[in-house]
Design a protein around this nucleic acid. Structure first.
Lengths: 229, 229
DNA sequence: TGACTTAATTATGAATTCAAAATTACCGTG
DNA sequence: CACGGTAATTTTGAATTCATAATTAAGTCA
């Protein structure tokens, strides 16, 4: 159902890109702990590659902000700071708002069906309080809207920033109240999308991001508090 | 006058980052011709480095979209296509609009003076039809607004996309009419910034980008036409 | 014991090497 | 002469090597 990027590319991806794809989940999944050192040698052994392609991959991940390279001291998994959240969410908001506007212009009935379907699934996971499923489907919805916007540059930019925000399991933490609100927001998002009302969809996505930002910042502040004790 | 990123970093940048910084101007300046092969060995000789850091740099540049890596066939300088322009400018528009909004909240009187000064210089270069100076100052203005927005993530995103649009000398080509309009737009941009009118500044920056997009696309279409003959 | 040196070890950055792929040059055949 | 195929050359991707910087361990002395 997803739009294909091309006719089955036979070309083997270069090793370093393969590694980028493999390392990303380790970082956002928390297996590589934020603030800890990236165990270069260990990862080389694990993936059965030499240091050269691994280090190339680390350079790319660093340019995406997922890790930090300290000269002569190796690579470190970056941590999500409050100030970074305050920076990234407004940018992400602007980009998602644009994606909503563009999606309304280009989305097909089939794609609308798909989003509706995903939305229903998301509601179902909300009702049985399945947070993991909820988050997974939630992301699929945002991605589906992005796809419908038909703008690969926009997709890539959103993707990169989203990854940075997913580094920890922080986002998977919501109060019951915030969760309810988020679902309401998504209800509006779906309605505006179905109505192809770009302006209101953009506005709602912006508010959605702003609310998410607040929620994440609150949680991080609570974490800080906790750590101080 | 520009805000310093920190207290004189003694730490030597890693070689590959140094190379990224050195290669970028070669690409956007057109010395590395769009569509041509990146002469890896030649560049290694020129900068006196081995292939390892050079190849690391190329991987990073590729992830920024300035070059394209074809497996087993080397690196190629990407060309600015019409469809890419149609993609990038709307994204850049959204980001610049945000930067305008944020700048209105945080810009200092000293920074406002600086922008006013740059604006005056830009008008002067317009009046003597000095396109190179005009473009250079123009960029400084956009960058100053970006700095005033106090959002490094936003700055980095804008920077990356701007670079992609600067790859050729295409942008330095404007009709007399378009040039005049651009100056008028910049007049409004300055006024809204001085008035700290975020909403209108954002809107104007958006329109500015849209106009620029149209102008660049027209020029590229003309180029295509020319090439076909 | 504990701070300060100094030596051993390890990790990092970058050059070099090597196998595989792609390109070019060469050559025979129709 | 054009075409197809094979061998030589070059380029690329990735492993290995090597010098240097950083870290750890050991030893010295107050």
């Amino acid at each position: 159902m997803m739009s294909d990027t091309g006719p089955s590319p036979i070309q083997r991806k270069s090793l370093h890109l393969e590694l980028v794809d493999r390392l990303q989940p380790l970082i956002i999944g928390g297996e590589l702990v934020p603030g800890s050192k990236v165990p270069e040698k260990e990862l080389c052994d694990r993936f059965g590659v030499s240091r050269t392609p691994m280090r190339e991959a680390l350079k790319v991940l660093a340019s995406d902000g997922l890790i930090r390279l300290e000269p002569n001291r190796g690579a470190w998994v970056t941590i999500v700071t409050i100030s970074e959240v305050e920076e990234v969410f407004p940018v992400l908001g602007a980009l998602e708002a644009l994606s909503g506007k563009l999606a309304c212009e280009s989305i097909t009935p089939a794609e609308l069906d798909e989003v509706s379907d995903l939305h229903a699934q998301m509601i179902a996971s909300y009702e049985r309080r399945d947070l993991d499923a909820y988050f997974s489907i939630n992301q699929k919805i945002h991605r589906a809207i992005l796809m419908a916007a038909r703008n690969d540059t926009l997709t890539a930019s959103c993707q990169a920033l989203s990854l940075r925000m997913q580094r920890a399991r922080y986002l998977a933490n919501m109060t019951e109240g915030r969760w309810y609100d988020a679902v309401q927001e998504h209800e509006r998002i779906l309605q505006y999308l179905l109505a192809r009302d770009g302006e209101n969809l953009a506005q709602t996505l912006l508010e959605h991001m702003e609310a998410k930002r607040q929620s994440v910042v609150r949680w991080l502040q609570a974490q800080e508090q906790e750590a101080a004790e």
